[in-house]
Amino acid sequence: MPTKLTPENYYSVETDWDYMSFSRFKDFQRCEAAALAKLKGDWTPELDAKPLLVGNYVHSYFESPEAHEKFVKDHKSKIMSTRGKTKGQLKADYKFADVMIKALDDSELFNYVYKPGQKEVIVTGKLFGYDWKGKIDSLVLDQNYFCDLKTVDDLHKKHWQEDSRSWDNFIEDRGYYMQMAIYRELIKQTFGKDCNPYMFAVSKQAIPDKLAIDFTGESEALRMQAALEEIEANQERYWNIMMGEIKPKPCGRCEYCRSHKVLEEFVHATDIEVY
């Protein structure tokens, strides 16, 4: 039996071994070797933590006043200025996060749809025989819908998709069709309710842009189904890698692979890969 999930252990290493999640699955899709090393604690990505903190700052505000106060207190050294004329004030990035918050707070649609929901709801279930976990930003069970909140650099920036050899938007680029399909299925298994997914997104531009996004069209339904089929086709391999039954395949391009690269032979100048 997998460990029972609570708000305290949801992000723990122990439960990461018991349950697959959207973020863990995407890690394995990007690079199996890096995903396993990260899961085992053998490697930590050299990521810029600021975008994540800004996003969590915005999320915590709409979770509850208590959650926001706790977030600011827990991350005070990174969020608040400690010297000069601005000592004790929010750093510039978080002052701007307050502008993003206001952009949503001033939206009647956002207030009507997102705010009434139960926040940070843990859901679990099985996808094609394996245990999964998820955490819902805002869940409104009595009206059969849920919402996810995203902070994005530019809502209308185009992203190149190597598989389809075409440009697409941030929803496709970041795998959000898959995330919404996962959450919908886990909600159904946890509460017995078939809920429609919605997303509110706010940009990190000087004057924030915002969108209310639904996934109810035929094209969206097809993409969400394709995402679930992608999980079915690949997750057994990922679980076997986690259990040590299959050796992970390095992508050869990511930060982890670059840091472990060993020169063993020459490559022709004309054979250098581009991606």
Rank of each mutant, 00 (worst) to 15 (best):
Q29M: 14
W17L: 12
K26E: 01
D18L: 08
A37D: 00
K4W: 06
E32L: 08
Y10H: 14
E14A: 14
Y19A: 07
R30V: 07
D27L: 04
P51D: 03
K50I: 09
T6R: 12
Y19I: 02
D48E: 04
F28Y: 15
E14D: 12
A37P: 07
F28M: 09
P7C: 08
D48W: 02
W43V: 03
S12N: 00
Q29Y: 08
A34D: 01
K4G: 09
F25W: 10
D27E: 15
V13E: 10
L53Q: 04
P45D: 02
D27M: 11
T15D: 07
A34V: 03
L47Y: 10
L39V: 10
E14V: 09
T44I: 14
N9S: 03
A33Q: 06
E8M: 10
F25K: 06
A34I: 02
A34W: 01
S23R: 06
D18V: 06
T15S: 15
G41R: 05
N9C: 08
Y11R: 13
Y10Q: 14
S12Q: 00
A35N: 04
T15L: 11
D16R: 14
L53F: 01
K50D: 05
L52F: 12
L52I: 08
T6Y: 12
R30N: 13
A34Y: 01
W43E: 04
E46F: 10
A33D: 02
K40C: 00
K4H: 12
S21H: 10
E32G: 12
D16C: 12
K40Y: 00
D16V: 03
A35G: 08
E32V: 07
T3C: 04
A35I: 00
